[in-house]
Design a binder for these strands. Structure first.
Lengths: 229, 229
DNA sequence: CGGCCGATTGAGACAAGTCAACTCGGGTGG
DNA sequence: CCACCCGAGTTGACTTGTCTCAATCGGCCG
């Protein structure tokens, strides 16, 4: 099966008139299609042939790899305006699945790469996206390879709050997703969170929502500075 | 200090005649310079301004990030023909240091990016390199986040052997480097290695050289299949 | 040949994992 | 509208893999 061939709900956009131009000036790609996904639905799976690239219109998706025994590692969460799925030569190496309800624009890969040939500015912006993503990958390696549980969770919360641009913040993903993103178990994530609550670094009235209460303290927790305690 | 400004030993190549063209047809970049490094010498450090990109002519380098308390994570080892150092917008996020004696070609970043503007083929090849490196980063995240010590070491040995294209293989880096690459400690790396020796998966007459003896067994060790034991 | 640094081995400590019980909150059906 | 149910989340007791600290080994260079 090839990705993007089975749309539960689709809605073509500017697919008819090649001269019309994309509705998104930054991409300006023709022939794009919008696909809607419900939470838990997968967009594509490891092993499939890559035929589309995607742009998140709204919602959150997760990209992951699985080990034979079921252990899972979520490499990225994608949010509004993130571009993904072009990072495959032919075959998908990871699976991408909706975390929340999601709308993604599907762009045929060949159109995408043709655009890259034609526009140096476009390919430069792609290179920059890739470079930034690689930098993030490196800091995640540091996190996974060298940080303690409480550092990992603190970094994660800070990133969530930062992305939200607000101290009050919704946690869209499950504890299992967080654990799989941080290389921990559900139980450890919970324990660290309740520890942070008890120490008034965060408020968390319900499981899927939190507020940063002591951002300085949380940052100290995320840095290794906390090892001075 | 900006990288590449203090050359202990340098040897300009085609820096005089812009029409001469690079000696390396795949790059064809003018104004490049070759720099020699001794083991342990650093090419550039985190925080410096990025002014050059590099191509490995021979030898092995390591790229790493450090945590405040000194814990270190080696994100990549670079070998002959690897291109690196362009993955920074302005400021270096990692440090790169010679593992063995090394020769690298230094390419001014602006020349590099100008070349990208001019040649779609060149920028496509850069995009492909980046994509491949990102894929490697993802599989390393899986390793760091979800694999056991013996799986990590087995994967590492298999990669070494694969890169060498030979079952007999030199280990250029120290145990500390390996540990920092795998998110383990020196001691754990040693223990796993002696365990592999005892079980005749590998031979390792001296610390810096090994032979794969039972590649199937080693692969089983690298996969999570070994959790069936 | 001796010294030194990297590598190896051992013993004990500790962070995180496992397994299992329990709670909570949201959704559904009566 | 309420009560129940179910799955996600939390907490606890115990296990274990890896780390830490410390001692010893061994190859390489002067």
């Amino acid at each position: 099966m090839r990705d993007g061939l089975e749309f539960s709900a689709l809605d073509t956009e500017d697919a008819t008139d090649p001269e019309k131009g994309g509705s998104k000036p930054t991409l300006g790609l023709k022939m794009s299609i919008v696909r809607q996904l419900k939470p838990g639905e997968t967009l594509y799976c490891e092993g499939e042939t890559a035929t589309y690239c995607f742009e998140v219109l709204n919602g959150v998706l997760k990209e992951y790899q699985v080990l034979e025994d079921g252990r899972r590692e979520i490499s990225e969460f994608y949010r509004k305006d993130d571009l993904f799925g072009y990072c495959a030569v032919t075959e998908r190496l990871e699976t991408v699945e909706a975390v929340t309800s999601v709308a993604v624009r599907c762009i045929p890969r060949d159109a995408f790469f043709r655009r890259m040939e034609q526009s140096p500015a476009f390919s430069r912006s792609i290179v920059e996206t890739l470079i930034e993503r690689l930098a993030r990958a490196h800091s995640r390696m540091l996190l996974l390879g060298r940080m303690r549980a409480h550092q990992r969770v603190a970094s994660f919360l800070l990133r969530l709050a930062d992305d939200a641009g607000d101290d009050e913040c919704v946690i869209e993903m499950s504890r299992q997703d967080i654990a799989d993103h941080l290389g921990l178990t559900i139980e450890t994530v919970c324990r660290v969170l309740t520890d942070f609550k008890k120490r008034h670094l965060i408020d968390m009235p319900v499981a899927r929502r939190f507020t940063v209460r002591d951002s300085r303290g949380l940052e100290a927790e995320a840095d290794t500075l906390s090892s001075l305690n």
